[in-house]
Amino acid sequence: MTILIPAGFVIERQYDASPERVFACYSSAKEKLAWLGCHSNWSYSVFEFREGGREIGGDPTESPAYAFEGVYHQIIENRRIAYAYRMTRDGEFFASSVTSIELEPHAGGTKLTFSEQSLFTDGPDTPALREEGTNWGLDQLGPFLETRKATA
């Protein structure tokens, strides 16, 4: 009998940028790749940022090679993005998640609340690594928003 491990976490971040600017970091493939780059050759074969649209990405040059297949379920412009996705490692399923990203105007900037519930198979990719990786990604977003402010 195989084992599935349920997990979940919530991360809050405050950014010194408007919800519109933070939202724009998620709504275009080019912008998203520019800051969420934890895999050096990650690319999207599908990027349909709309309700019911899919996002398919991966880095086939890596070993092991990770891939993401997701569907956007709800998008409220500048406020909320909700999606579900499955992840594979060398083509093998290892995790499913349902995620929401909420943006609220707060203290002259934006409060971002990232909430995720997941199931993991019993392998090298663990819920703790996912949470760590998500924190790392959200840490990149602050400095990235600063660079966008500088060039605006």
Binding site: Y83, S96, V98, Q117, L119
Partner: peptide, 21 residues
């Protein structure tokens, strides 16, 4: 042994009211 799926439910013409695993 197992099935894992995601599903979204909503009223026609409105954004979904839930997304679940």
């Amino acid at each position: 042994e197992r099935i894992v799926l995601s599903y979204a439910m909503g009223w026609v013409g409105e954004p979904p009211f839930s997304a679940s695993l």
